[in-house]
């Protein structure tokens, strides 16, 4: 590739980390827009949001929270393992992280599935006929925000997948670990956003 010609010697771990943090800012602002909308409508429709939140299954939400927290731990451990040059452990821990991400998505799938069965989805007849405007807004935001978060889980899993390939082929190693550290940062961001989504939708009544 022609770019190798310019930059085969240019490897700036500090630079890539700055870039990742900047990208994380943009992600926070992306969700920030949604959090603003949520707070405005929550303020305007307090009772309806209270009612609608009771529809959500706190147990599944809590399980998913624990799953994500554990996955954040495993990816952090994989970074340490790489620093100690334990390639096998690194790959195992990354594999566990991927698996936990998948379990989260499966839970989410069933959770959404139950809502759909009860006729709760944007534009459904049940919603427009039986629910108040505040409840419609709550579920609209619920699907958008958890959906967008799930999309980020998928993106995070793809990034981790690439990292797994590069670790096992030896391109990412203890002295060249920026990719793993950056995917770790990204995964923590995905986790962090869920830490806000969980109380906002499931816990506040």
């Amino acid at each position: 590739m022609s770019q190798a010609i310019h930059h085969d010697e240019h490897y700036d771990a500090e630079g890539s980390k700055i870039a990742m943090w900047l990208f994380i800012f943009t992600e926070l602002l992306l969700f920030g827009g949604l959090f603003i909308i949520y707070s405005v409508y929550r303020y305007l429709n307090q009772d309806a949001f209270h009612l609608a939140a009771e529809e959500l299954n706190t147990t599944i939400g809590a399980i998913n929270t624990v799953i994500l927290l554990v996955s954040s731990m495993t990816i952090a451990m994989s970074t340490s393992a790489l620093q100690k040059r334990q390639k096998g452990t690194t790959l195992l821990l990354l594999g566990i992280t991927l698996f936990l991400g998948l379990v989260f998505l499966v839970n989410k799938y069933f959770e959404w599935g139950v809502k759909f069965e009860h006729g709760i989805f944007p534009g459904s007849e049940h919603m427009t006929e039986n629910l108040s405007q505040g409840e419609i807004l709550f579920f609209g935001l619920y699907f958008v925000m958890t959906g967008l978060h799930a999309l980020h889980i998928i993106i995070g899993m793809i990034i981790i997948g690439v990292t797994v390939a590069k670790v096992s082929s030896g391109k990412v190693h203890a002295d060249r670990s920026a990719l793993l550290e950056n995917s770790g940062l990204y995964w923590h961001l995905v986790d962090l956003i869920w830490i806000f989504l969980f109380p906002l939708f499931y816990l506040i009544h």
Binding site: V40, Y41, G123, T128, S132, Q133
Partner: peptide, 13 residues
């Protein structure tokens, strides 16, 4: 999908 966030008919602003 008609999520309602900006649609006054569904409570949005």
């Amino acid at each position: 999908f008609g999520i309602g966030v900006f649609d006054p008919a569904l409570g949005g602003d």
